[in-house]
């Protein structure tokens, strides 16, 4: 958990992308992405469909290779075979062998993973409860998800990559699976990167955010810091255009309704003048950035790729 965060060095960053790009045919699914994800974070990966979320997860899970740049997990390039054991991946449709029994599925986990933790996997399955002898093909969506998560956590990964883990689940299963995910991540100290369309879920489950649009990073960093960097300002609309006190800041988006002027701004110092400034919600910030492709991306200090590592090598 928080207290057991690994010390500095390569292990401090669960994921680090430098100039990462992926092209399918002529289309760039991901382009020039550079960011960091600190170890121990539970990070929401958000963005529109086709923005590059699944591509990023696929790159980290070694299902596909980057066209440009590099991606490293805990300081090790994804091209190295050893990252396989440190990271678990759950595809959106949670593929499993339908004719295997639950027990055989867990045996597969044991056979293919040297660090397999049988106790953890069986605890997750049994608390479902998912009967050990049942065929996977006969399980409900929630039970399948539970089994897939058991397989992922049984691997004892340091990084867990989830592609829309809660999509297509009924509300009860969604709640159960989300709770399971959070509790196991807390107990094992797993770093989690999960893509999701449910902003409410992201807001409660995640402490970090990675927003992508059009294959590029728009927001990255701790959610608290990202929200604190922004203000939603409201006031009377007296002059044409953006009022000068507001224009000093980076205006993400603004609109006027009658005599009311509302803007989402990235603060450069305190907001002066006769403005009502409140901290925006995650949804407001996120939608603002996704709607305004012209606004420069924001990466908090934690999420920025610096050259400290290379500096160390040189020194």
């Amino acid at each position: 958990m928080g207290g057991t965060a690994p010390p500095g060095g390569g292990d401090r960053w669960a994921m680090e992308a430098r100039g990462l790009g992926k092209r399918y045919g002529r289309k760039w699914a991901l382009r020039d992405c550079s960011f960091r994800l600190p170890a121990g974070a539970i990070c929401g990966l958000v963005g529109s469909n086709g923005a590059g979320k699944s591509t990023l997860l696929s790159l980290a899970a070694r299902l596909t290779r980057p066209t440009t740049g590099g991606l490293s997990l805990f300081g090790t390039a994804v091209t190295e075979d050893e990252v396989l054991a440190r990271c678990a991946y759950l595809a959106q449709d949670k593929p499993l062998f339908p004719r295997f029994t639950v027990e055989e599925t867990l045996r597969m986990g044991a056979e293919l993973n040297p660090r397999w933790d049988r106790a953890v996997a069986e605890r997750i399955v049994r608390s479902g409860p998912v009967p050990m002898g049942d065929r996977v093909g006969t399980l409900s969506g929630g039970q399948r998800s539970r089994l897939a998560l058991a397989l992922a956590f049984g691997k004892r990964p340091e990084l867990l990559l989830l592609d829309e883990p809660m999509a297509e689940l009924d509300p009860l299963s969604q709640h159960e699976i989300a709770g399971l995910l959070m509790a196991e991540a807390a107990e094992q100290g797993t770093t989690v990167l999960m893509s999701s369309h449910q902003l409410a879920d992201v807001a409660t489950m995640c402490d970090h955010l990675l927003a992508v649009a059009d294959g590029r990073v728009r927001l990255a960093g701790a959610i608290d810091e990202l929200l604190d960097a922004h203000r939603l300002v409201t006031g009377a609309y007296l002059v044409d255009g953006v009022p000068p006190e507001i224009a000093r800041h980076t205006v993400v988006e603004s609109r006027t309704t009658g005599r009311q002027f509302t803007a989402l701004i990235r603060r450069q110092g305190p907001v002066e003048g006769d403005w009502r400034a409140t901290e925006p919600s995650l949804e407001e910030v996120l939608l603002g950035y996704l709607r305004s492709p012209g606004t420069p991306p924001l990466l908090t200090a934690d999420a920025q790729v610096t050259d400290e590592h290379e500096g160390e090598v040189a020194a």
């Binding site: 539970i42 709770g179 959070m182 509790a183 807390a186 879920d201 409660t204």
Partner: peptide, 18 residues
């Protein structure tokens, strides 16, 4: 309650509880 058990019941990020 431990962060993990809060997480299990409310799906709240354990770091938030901490």
């Amino acid at each position: 309650p431990t962060a993990a058990s809060v997480a299990r019941n409310t799906k709240l990020n354990p770091n938030t509880t901490l």
